Simulated assay, not measured.
Amino acid sequence: MTSTEPIRIGVLGTHSTGKTTLLRRIEMELRSHGITVARTGRLGKRAAAAGLPKMQHHTALSTEWIITQGIVDEIDAVTQGAEVVLIDRAAHDAIAYWHAALAFRAETPPRLERERLLALASTQLPKYDLLFATELDPRVPVDTSHNYDAGYRWLVDQHAHRLLANDNISHQRVTSDPDSQAHAVDVAVQLCLKEAAL
């Protein structure tokens, strides 16, 4: 690839809906074509390791940490020469998790905090060449070792897709159907190969 700016592909959606698996599949396909790929991720676990709340306990502070750390990770990937950066948990993902946590706790988001964090997440949108949003399929079993709250998981899904719709953010939905996932991988790979040929 000859472009100085890498291609950025982001994914968002509630937990255990295949975000990381989708990006792994895209990464493997791109690497098989000789394209240098970097993948960001594990932001929730890293936030918890830093002493920040997660899942239904999310706060404005933990949300800001996840967004800004995601930005730092992406910049690191670019400076290391990645031709494609795969972003596991695009910026609006953190907003959806926070809104869902507030709804779960029956709290109202403070207006100024909400506007500030939404503005911060929105600064990242122009950088994404492609954005995927996974959909929750309650029929698909989750790993029981995670002890997820099903209600909170559903709220994250609802808030993620509501944010995308309300702000008219261009994205492609990815369901649990294997054909949908294969199509998403193909769309991402074809975009990158097209850019590589320029």
Rank of each mutant, 00 (worst) to 15 (best):
T2P: 01
S3I: 03
T4Q: 04
R8N: 05
V11F: 10
L12I: 13
G18F: 12
K19S: 07
T21M: 15
L22I: 11
I26E: 01
I26C: 01
E27D: 13
R31F: 10
G34N: 02
T40C: 07
A47R: 01
A47M: 05
A50Y: 05
G51L: 04
L52N: 04
Q56G: 06
A60I: 03
A60R: 05
I67T: 02
Q69C: 09
G70S: 11
V85M: 02
I87T: 05
H92M: 11
D93G: 08
A94H: 06
I95M: 08
Y97Q: 00
H99K: 14
A103P: 07
R111N: 07
R116D: 11
L117M: 06
L117T: 03
A121M: 09
S122Q: 15
T123L: 09
Q124G: 12
L125W: 15
L125A: 09
P126D: 05
Y128E: 02
Y128H: 06
L130P: 03
P138W: 09
P138C: 04
R139I: 07
V140S: 09
T144L: 13
S145N: 14
S145A: 13
N147R: 12
Y148W: 15
A150N: 13
W154C: 14
D157M: 12
H161V: 07
A165Y: 15
N166C: 15
D167N: 13
I169L: 10
H171F: 12
H171S: 10
Q172Y: 14
Q172T: 12
T175Y: 13
D177I: 06
A182F: 11
V187A: 08
Q190H: 07
L191D: 00
A196M: 00
